[in-house]
C-alpha cells in the first residue's frame, strides 16, 4: 500500500503547520462537528467582511486527515464569497465521493487536490469531509446561505 499516495506532502504540511486555525472575535455563527466513530472534532466559525466575503476560523483535534482538511479549507475559502464556497465545497465533496476515480481541478479546490488519494479509503473520507460539513452548517446558521440538501 502506498502511504505516500494517501498522506501527500501537502497534507502532512498542513497538518504540521495549520493555516487559519484561529478563534474569531465576533463570529456570526459556529458549528461543532464530530466523527462519532473516532472522536475527531472540529468547530468552524464564520463571519462576513464588509463585502460579504467569508471570514473563517476553526479549532479542532483529530487525525492528520481531518485537521489538514480544515487547514486547507480555511486557507482556500478565507475571503471567498459564499457562492464560491458552495461551489468549491461541491467539487471537494464530489472528489471525496469518487472512490478515487476523479480528476480534481486544482484551479477550483487548490491544495484540496491532495485529498484525492484519501477518497480510496472509505474510513477516512469522513475525516476529510468533517470541516467542510461544519463550514456548511455554520454558513446556514449565520444566515449566509439557505438551508438546503446541498451534499450527501
Amino acid at each position: 500500500m502506498d502511504l505516500n499516495g494517501l498522506y501527500q506532502e501537502i497534507i502532512l504540511d498542513h497538518y504540521k503547520h495549520p493555516r487559519g486555525k484561529v478563534v474569531l472575535e465576533a463570529p456570526l455563527a459556529s458549528a461543532h462537528h464530530v466523527n462519532p466513530t473516532c472522536g475527531d472534532e472540529v468547530t468552524v466559525e464564520v463571519a462576513a467582511d464588509d463585502h460579504g466575503h467569508l471570514v473563517i476560523g476553526y479549532q479542532g483535534q483529530g487525525c492528520s486527515i481531518s485537521q489538514a482538511s480544515a487547514s486547507v479549507m480555511a486557507e482556500l475559502l478565507e475571503g471567498a464569497s459564499v457562492d464560491e464556497s458552495v461551489s468549491v465545497r461541491e467539487a471537494f465533496v464530489a472528489m471525496m465521493h469518487s472512490q478515487g476515480n476523479s480528476e480534481p481541478d486544482e484551479d477550483v479546490i487548490g491544495d484540496g487536490v491532495a485529498f484525492a488519494g484519501v477518497a480510496k479509503y472509505p474510513a477516512r473520507v469522513k475525516c476529510a469531509l468533517l470541516p467542510w460539513m461544519a463550514l456548511q452548517d455554520a454558513e446556514i446558521k449565520a444566515g449566509l446561505m439557505a438551508p438546503k440538501e446541498e451534499t450527501r
Binding site: G39, G62, C63, Y121
Partner: peptide, 19 residues
C-alpha cells in the same frame, strides 16, 4: 493521532482498532 497510527499499521498488514 490513533487514526494515523492505525493507517500506517494497516499499510503493513497489521489490523488494530482505533477510536
Amino acid at each position: 493521532h490513533p487514526h494515523d497510527v492505525g493507517q500506517v499499521l494497516d499499510s503493513r498488514g497489521v489490523a488494530v482498532r482505533v477510536g
